[in-house]
Design a binder for these strands. Structure first.
Length: 199
DNA sequence: CCCGTGATTCTCT
DNA sequence: GAGAATCACGGGC
C-alpha cells in the first residue's frame, strides 16, 4: 500500500471515517469526492455486518486495510465500504455520498434520470455511478482503475446517528461535510413493526 | 407514505 | 435442508 493511502487509513475507525471526507474515490473515468461516510467498528459494533463474526459475505472486512468491501442488499442495491484498521479488527467505513468530480458524462449515462447532485447521493447511487458491484468486493484501492486518494483536510465535519440502523442508534458515527448538497437525505430506521393492510 | 427484490444468516429439523 | 426474518436502499405517489 502506498504511504499516502496507508496514512489515510491508519488509526481507529472513528478517526479514519471523518478523515475520508474530501478524499477521492476513482474507478476508471469517473471520480467522486466523498462528502458523507459512516464508521463501522467490527465485532464491537452491533450495527456492523461483522458483529456476529466471520461469514462468507463479510470476510473481506476481516482482511487487511485498503480494500473495498461491497455487499448487495434489498435485492437490488450495492453498497461499498473501505476496509481499515489492523487485520482482524473488521472495521470499515461505508461510503454514503459524494460529488462527481470527473467523468460527469459517463456518470450521467449511468444514472440518466438523476440531477447531477444526486448522482452519488446515497450509498447505492454512489456504487451505481462508479460502476461498483460484487465483482469489486475485496478489490485493492491502490491499483488503477480503482484508487482512493486523500484530499485537503476538511474545514468542518458534522456528525450524527447512522442511517437506517435499528441497533446502536445512540452512536453518532455518521460524518458529513456541512453545507454540501450531495449529502444523502436522512432516513431513520423504521421503528414501528410492519403492519399488514386489510384484515 | 409504500413497496420491490433477492442474498444472507439464523433457527429449527 | 427448509422456512423465515432481516436488510448500512431508492423510487414513486
Amino acid at each position: 500500500m502506498p504511504p499516502e493511502l496507508r496514512a489515510l487509513l491508519e488509526g481507529p475507525v472513528l478517526e479514519v471515517a471523518p478523515r475520508l471526507l474530501g478524499a477521492t474515490l476513482r474507478h476508471g473515468d469517473v471520480a467522486v469526492r466523498l462528502t458523507e461516510v459512516e464508521a463501522y467498528d467490527g465485532a464491537n459494533d452491533p450495527g456492523s455486518h461483522a458483529h456476529r463474526g466471520l461469514t462468507p459475505r463479510n470476510s473481506v472486512m476481516f482482511g487487511p486495510a485498503g480494500h473495498l468491501y461491497v455487499y448487495f442488499t434489498y435485492g437490488m442495491h450495492h453498497c461499498c465500504n473501505v476496509v481499515c484498521g489492523p487485520e482482524g479488527t473488521a472495521s470499515a467505513v461505508l461510503l454514503r455520498a459524494g460529488e462527481v468530480v470527473d467523468g460527469l458524462e459517463t456518470a450521467r449515462q449511468r444514472r440518466p434520470r438523476s440531477r447531477d447532485r444526486d448522482l452519488a447521493r446515497g450509498p447505492a447511487r454512489l456504487c451505481q455511478t462508479l460502476d461498483l458491484d460484487l465483482g469489486h468486493n475485496g478489490a485493492r484501492l491502490d491499483v488503477p482503475p480503482l484508487t482512493l486518494e486523500p484530499g485537503p483536510a476538511p474545514e468542518a465535519v458534522s456528525s450524527g446517528p447512522r442511517v437506517g440502523l435499528r441497533l446502536a442508534s445512540d452512536r453518532a458515527w455518521r460524518f458529513w461535510l456541512p453545507e454540501e448538497p450531495t449529502v444523502s437525505q436522512y432516513r431513520s430506521a423504521a421503528p414501528l413493526p410492519r403492519r399488514r393492510t386489510g384484515r
